[in-house]
Amino acid sequence: MKSRRLIFQILLVLILIAIGGTMMVIGRGHTVYFDNKSLDYQGSTYASPYKIEIYQGSSAEGDALSKLYDGERASATQIGQKITVTLVITQEKGGDEADPVTYTIDLPYNMDGPIINLPAYLAGLPEEAYLSEFIPVITEDPDEEVPTGGDDMSLGDF
């Protein structure tokens, strides 16, 4: 009876660990940045198109996440290890829009804010070329924050 209980308890702990592990993988959040900027890689220049319309998801219906002109950046939040975007590309000003194409891009687990250079990605370059990490720059000395440990909380919040 005791050993049965112990097995049950160990099983329960293992199940909880497994659920926790799964949540860590499927729930990892990223702020994904999309760049429409020209890129030099191994001596070649990959020019940015005039405009890229980005739709989050597998269709170009509804409102676009952003319309990126040459040299611009957009961001989207994504939970999980992949992001699916549909791109509508206009190569030149006044030119025709290409048909929407859907891409699924892998997002590295250890990056909070991956930057995807779209011209490099569309040119089929390796991950090291199109992927970099967004690191926020602190430009000013932060004000010292004094932790407060008062004994009450706004009643209205309860």
Partner: peptide, 18 residues
């Protein structure tokens, strides 16, 4: 801090709190 968002974040927080 682990940047687990949404429902998975809530479930994970519950598991960690146990």
């Amino acid at each position: 801090d682990w940047q687990i968002w949404g429902i998975p974040g809530i479930v994970l927080a519950m598991i960690v709190s146990i």
